[in-house]
Amino acid sequence: MAFRPRDLADRMAGRRKPDDGYLRETFTLPRDKARTKARDFLSRYPKAAYMSGVESWRELPGGDIEFTMRRLRSAD
């Protein structure tokens, strides 16, 4: 059985401390739409109030961008 890098990433994410106070959302979009989505996220949840930001990102072989945005849970 072949493992993909995403399998490892999912397994590592499962080990993450579950109650660190952040909510995370992962998106996979073309570059321009990824930029727009990140801007919208940061407009909706400003860094000063919610400590929001891009936690990680990577470019996939097809050119899409996979990125994870995080924000404080207290924003809900």
Rank of each mutant, 00 (worst) to 15 (best):
I65N: 00
F67W: 03
D20P: 01
Y45E: 06
K37D: 06
D7G: 00
G21M: 14
L23K: 14
K33Q: 15
F67Y: 05
M12I: 06
R11A: 13
R70A: 09
P30L: 14
E66N: 06
R44K: 12
R4K: 13
A48C: 04
E55K: 09
R4G: 02
P61L: 01
D20E: 07
R24F: 10
R11Q: 13
G21R: 07
P61N: 02
D7M: 00
M69R: 02
D32S: 05
A75L: 00
D64M: 05
D19F: 10
D40C: 15
L72T: 06
S43W: 03
R16D: 11
R58K: 14
R11V: 11
G21W: 12
G53H: 00
K33E: 15
A38Q: 09
M69T: 05
A9Y: 07
P30A: 04
E25T: 11
R71H: 00
L72W: 11
G14K: 05
L72A: 06
A38Y: 05
A2R: 10
G21S: 07
D76S: 08
F3R: 15
L29S: 09
S56P: 02
T28C: 13
P5T: 01
L29Y: 14
R44C: 06
R31G: 01
R73D: 07
S74W: 08
R71C: 06
K33F: 01
K37W: 04
R11Y: 15
D40R: 15
G62D: 15
L72D: 11
M1Q: 10
G63F: 00
G63M: 01
R6N: 10
D19V: 08
G53V: 05
R58W: 04
G14V: 01
D20F: 13
R58P: 00
T36H: 12
